[in-house]
């Protein structure tokens, strides 16, 4: 390797001298460190405060409580990575769950047909958001604020305001809520679905060109376009994949709630954004990991569960989640500022 002598020196990457900037650079390179630490500390604290916290039954409960947020949170992560945001996620999930249940129960089709159609409907919902963002160049915040109301209205219209009981549906549609024995813990199939999806989407993001392009679009969309990336196509695909993931989330929602109801998952919008942000993904796009969102969902679940176990009022659970979100965004700002 021939390196002209006069080019040395300026070419080396300046060693970072003070501790703060070194910490920043490490956190920049490994965004999941923050959430991992928070989760471990929370687990430790709650296990000291409550004997029941680490019991197999309780851990099983926590995972089941986070599976819906975890699954739709993967879709939300993709959109936030492109510097967008999706406020319609909760009502897309509700809408798709009602469509799925109606196809199966009212029309009497087999579960697999209802499920596959629901996945198509979810993807179409995501595509609608994507088309409005890409085609009309509207801000994602406004588009999804609008479609949130639209999907809520459609959910109420189709369901007539009434829930469809899980007991009336084909078994496949409630399968996500049923569980199997793993060691001394019971694991819901929906949790397995969540983990499989985290692995699949992580692969797509980290190991394929599409994934690089998703990050590049979120980082700097003009630079991405000048680098020859078809940014509109990337954005559209992200919204479509997110819609597909919301449809899977709808399936998990039916399993978890034991019903398809227009009242379900009213908090899913903000909960999914919380999970993404607490998981270390930057709201400004281009930085973050899907596995972080899984951790973020688990952290929220652990705080809610742990605080409930030690007998703290519900309102303090909300307080804790709020504080976590602000801390996570503040940390992200600090990391970004330091790296420039």
């Amino acid at each position: 390797m021939k390196v002209p002598a006069k080019l040395e020196g300026t070419a080396t990457i300046e060693p970072t001298t003070n501790l703060a900037s070194r910490v920043r650079n490490v956190l920049y390179a490994y965004p999941v460190i923050g959430p991992v630490v928070v989760m471990l500390v929370a687990t430790l604290v709650f296990s000291l405060l409550s004997d029941r916290f680490l019991s197999p039954d309780n851990l099983s409960l926590v995972t089941q409580q986070v599976m819906v947020i975890g699954i739709v949170g993967i879709g939300q992560t993709l959109i936030i990575l492109t510097a967008g945001i999706d406020l319609s996620v909760g009502y897309i999930a509700v809408f798709v769950s009602i469509v799925m249940a109606n196809i199966a129960v009212s029309a009497g089709t087999p579960g697999i047909v209802a499920l596959l159609l629901a996945l198509v409907v979810g993807t179409a919902c995501g595509l609608l958001n994507g088309a409005l963002v890409v085609g009309l160049r509207l801000p994602p915040f406004i588009v999804t604020l609008g479609t949130m109301s639209i999907f809520l209205a459609l959910s109420l219209y189709i369901s007539g305001g009434a829930a469809i009981r899980g007991a009336d549906m084909p078994d496949l549609l409630t399968w996500t809520g049923s569980a199997f024995q793993l060691g001394n813990t019971r694991v819901a199939y929906g949790v397995v679905v969540m983990v499989v999806l985290v692995v699949l989407v992580s692969y797509a993001l980290q190991r394929t060109a599409w994934g690089r392009h998703v990050y590049a679009v979120g980082d700097d969309i003009v630079a991405a376009r000048l680098s020859g990336i078809r940014t509109r196509r990337v954005l559209l695909s992200v919204y479509a994949v997110a819609g597909l993931l919301y449809a899977v989330g709808a399936w998990a929602l039916i399993g978890r709630a034991g019903a398809a109801s227009p009242q379900a998952a009213a908090t899913l919008n903000l909960d999914s954004i919380s999970a993404v942000v607490i998981g270390g993904t930057s709201l400004f796009g281009g930085r973050g990991l899907v596995v972080g969102t899984l951790l973020g969902a688990l952290i929220v679940g652990i705080f809610r569960n742990g605080l409930a176990l030690i007998g703290v009022q519900v309102l303090w659970q909300e307080f804790a989640v709020g504080a976590l979100i602000i801390a996570a965004v503040a940390l992200d700002q600090w990391i970004r500022k330091g790296s420039r």
């Binding site: 690089r212 990050y215 590049a216 980082d219 003009v222 630079a223 000048l226 281009g286």
Partner: peptide, 24 residues
């Protein structure tokens, strides 16, 4: 090949990813 004044690099991607951006 064009190098724009704004550089058209993606800051949070690594050096290798940037070099091959758009033609991985």
């Amino acid at each position: 090949e064009t190098v724009y004044q704004t550089l058209a690099v993606s800051p949070s991607l690594d050096i290798a990813s940037n070099l091959f951006l758009g033609r991985e």
